[in-house]
Write a protein that binds this DNA or RNA. Sequence first.
DNA 1: CAGCGGCGTTAGTGGTCGTTAACCTGAAGG
DNA 2: CCTTCAGGTTAACGACCACTAACGCCGCTG
Lengths: 212, 212
Amino acid sequence: MNDAPTRTPAQAAPTRREQILSEAARLFAERGFHGVGVDEIGAAVGISGPGLYRHFAGKDAMLAELLVGISERLFAGGRRRVIEATSAGGGPAAVLGSLIDGHIDFALDDRALITLHDRELGQLRDSDRKQVRSLQRQYVELWVDVVRRLHPDPYEAEVRAAVHAVFGLLNSTPHLGRPGALPGREATAALLRRLAHGAFAALSDGGPRPEA
Amino acid sequence: MNDAPTRTPAQAAPTRREQILSEAARLFAERGFHGVGVDEIGAAVGISGPGLYRHFAGKDAMLAELLVGISERLFAGGRRRVIEATSAGGGPAAVLGSLIDGHIDFALDDRALITLHDRELGQLRDSDRKQVRSLQRQYVELWVDVVRRLHPDPYEAEVRAAVHAVFGLLNSTPHLGRPGALPGREATAALLRRLAHGAFAALSDGGPRPEA
DNA sequence: CAGCGGCGTTAGTGGTCGTTAACCTGAAGG
DNA sequence: CCTTCAGGTTAACGACCACTAACGCCGCTG
């Protein structure tokens, strides 16, 4: 049951807070925010129930920190990739490729967070929810900008919808059998990469007619 | 607040049960199964709280009927389309196109159910969950079979993952701004259709290398 | 060694929520 | 007109649950 943390010697032991956040994320993703009790979260890290309140103001605060954290990391990572790929002389295609790769890494490494990200937004306090939404919007904007440079023809609304749709595609990893069922992590990543590029490619050309 | 039911004269008035299911689906999708109280569901149909128990054995029963119903309709509709498109002399491409069109119709017309479908599976009683999963599996199988005829090269596991990914793409409609933000329903459908076909097209060819 | 602060513990409390009980009403039917 | 029954009502109960209170242990640090 207790699979070893498998930590590379370089990185420090996770703090209690981090343990709690990690287990809470897993449990929330499995059974929903309201479906998990504080006693369960405590038990998952070896302490019991109210001991959590030494580290967090409440259950809501855990969820808030998780969702704000995801959104920040997604946006920051995306912005970094745009800057790096651009300053490396890459065109829009290279930038988009880097965004896709980054999102795939995230989707494969943090499945639980991906699940929470759009499942439990409604449970946040207004201020937190606004912050998360703002970060999400900025992240989407990164994508929309680069996709529009690559495919200038479609309306912006179409591009925005396409970006959301590709997010849905990439975020489908939690629905693939537990270990992935695919040969390995890299195979899954490669497949998702191809599918995402294929979807965006269909933005410019008329797209195959269904009765082809 | 009370937008008229807008019923075409042909179809009969919805029964109380159907009203309840419809409102429950909307509320569950908005705030999660555990986030909605029976009193709210009752209020949404103009009766109050425990009056629901004249129509359903409990809150769980409503969710179960919703999820089983969706799964059945999805699978039945998919099977019908496969049969019809096949007997009309269509090749795998036409059959896949019909499956995609059907799924898009569903995703656009029943957003709330799409949301519930993979969000609240865990809240079901074991027997119900097994039934839903079985129907889902059969539905996926319809897609895998036809996609494999169209793209014989990839491993079956890859095809299965691709199908799940395209589901994620098509089911992204709930994340597009409330009214759709797109020009209209048909425009959204056309866009999703193109993206889905584009993704599947990338299954066979090597797919664009990221550093293209 | 005093004491103090970080980190747990267990017991209790208030509130919410699903569900049941008991009762009411109005329309259909003999 | 009396009965029946579908479909409501309000009141109450019991379980659960997030959170607080009160207390204990231990490793610092001066």
